[in-house]
Structures are given as C-alpha cells and as structure tokens.
Design a protein around this nucleic acid. Structure first.
Lengths: 148, 148
DNA sequence: TTGCTTGCAAATGATTTGCACTGCT
DNA sequence: AGCAGTGCAAATCATTTGCAAGCAA
C-alpha cells in the first residue's frame, strides 16, 4: 500500500510536469494496470475499470504515454497492449504466446543486461545510432496452449 | 544473380508446400523486399513495385507470411513493416529510429546470441513457455535525425 | 477449360476527434 | 464563472473482403 501511494504520487508529479491533473479516471487506469500485473489491451482495461469510457481511456493512455507513465506495446495486428512505464516498475522483457497472445514479463540477470547494453551501444554507434532503450520479445507457446 | 535465382527457387518451393503459385506479382513483392534491403511499409512496397495493387499486395504478403517467406513487423501505430523471413536472409535484430521510423538491420556476434538463447530458454522454461524465436529491437535516434 | 489470382470498390475494426456537458478550483 | 476532462457519436485510416474479370497450368 505504501508502495502504491508512492507510485500514485510519482505519477501525479509526472502529469503535473505536462500540466495535467491526476483525475479519478486516470487513477482508475493506473490501478487497473497495476492490478493486471502484465500488459493488457484496451478492452481488458475497460473490463477491469467499467467506469471508464473507451474514448477517454484512449485519450488518457495517449496522454500518459506522453508523460512517461504508461507504455504502449504493439506486437500483433489487433489490440495494442499497455503497461506502466518501465521506470515505474522494473526493466523487463516479454514472453509472448503465439497462440493466445498472452504476454508475460520476465527479467534477465544484471550481468547479462550489462553485456547486452554494451553490445548494443557498440552496434548502434557503428550504425550512427544513438540508442536509448532496448526491447526483447521471446515468442513461443505458453503452458496452456502447449496442452492443446 | 545466382544467389537471387536460388532465393526465388527456394521461395517457390515454400509456396508450393501450401499449394500456391509463385506468380509475377508475388515475385515483384519479393524483388522489392530484396532491393529495399531493410523492412519497408506497404506504401513503400507499392512505390517500388507500381504494378502491384494494394489489396493484392496485402493478400500476398499475408499468404507469404503463412508460407514462411516474409515476416511482418509491427512497431508503431501506423504502417507495419515487411521483410523476408529470417531463414531466407540471416538472423538479425533491429535498430529503430524514434524520430523517423527508420529500421536498420544489425547482427550480434554468435557467442552473444548463444548466450542469449541459453538465457531465454531457461527463463521460458521457468515460466512454462516453449520459446521458438526472439526479437531484439534497439530504439534510439538515427544519424540523420540526431542532426536535427 | 477451370480454377487460382487480381483489381476494384465497399466493408471492417481499432483508434481518433468534434462538440456539448459536467465538475473542479 | 471558467476551463480542463468526459462521454457520446461521427470520422479516420490501415487492413480485409466480395465479386467479376484475367491469367496460368
């Protein structure tokens, strides 16, 4: 709970920086994302917070992405998935089930992450890129779908 | 040239396996992807092969994705990008410019790839996943946009 | 011929937007 | 009162699909 109110406070701060209020509806979105625990789609979000309206949810998610509060993931043709920004949670990657679309968060060990960052920095530099973030998605079949 | 006709032959084989012909239009798509050298969007594809029609291009790309000939990348809200399947080219990852959307292919060294695969297999196993592929996208700013 | 492919135009579905209304401050 | 936020309904835009006509085996 303490961690939660800390989170809400931090978020309010980030919204303030772009002159936005942390309204009840926006809090509902954040709470739904926290409770979900992994990236969810807009319909899923509305299911978890029925007080929300589709258009406002889209609007607020877009605004909060601006504010660095949420992140939008696009892996498939249909619904994008949303999760809290990484620096509000933890640096992590995704295990994605090709069958059902389930997305599971996973973390790599620090040493390996450091190795990767070094490798990416070098690669990017060679290509004239200035890297600022990396995503790793591992595709496969989840336990449920494997049993099909 | 030799490598190219080899490629076309291989592709024709893959299409045959799902009872599809390697028609002129489909060849145009593949040629455009080869010439592009990096993932391109549908409008870009049509620009490179003006003989193509939008709907047929979409249809054929979808079918060729089925056949394991092309891959569809979805990183942003707008147009998806298409590239040849990895086993027709080479295992690689993407450097993506946040400003202009440019996507550049890069490869990691074999040793690091092996380390990663091992790590992912372990992670996935712990989560009950059966992994079959990984994508790594490095986001940042490309040389052109950095000069803005 | 005999279907598989194509092109055109219309449909679909996620996301966005206009506008009038509600609720803070 | 005054303006940011919301909900509703209509608009967008990438992608998909139905159908009639063209092309390859």
């Amino acid at each position: 709970m303490a961690a939660d109110s800390q989170l809400h406070h931090e978020i309010q701060g980030r919204l303030q920086q772009i002159d936005q209020l942390y309204t009840r509806g926006r809090q509902s979105i954040v709470e739904a994302l926290v409770e979900a625990g992994s990236p969810i789609t807009l319909p899923e979000l509305l299911g978890r917070a029925p007080n929300l309206t589709q258009s406002s949810a889209y609007r607020n998610l877009a605004m909060m992405e601006e504010a660095g509060v949420v992140r939008r993931l696009v892996h498939s043709t249909d619904h994008a998935h949303y999760e809290l920004a990484e620096d509000l949670t933890e640096h992590h990657h995704h295990l994605i089930c090709r069958q059902c679309g389930l997305i599971k968060d996973v973390t790599l060990d620090k040493r390996l992450e450091r190795t990767l960052d070094t490798a990416f920095d070098k690669l990017a530099a060679d290509a004239g890129f200035q890297p600022d973030h990396h995503d790793i998605d591992v595709f496969g079949t989840c336990a449920d779908c494997a049993g099909t």
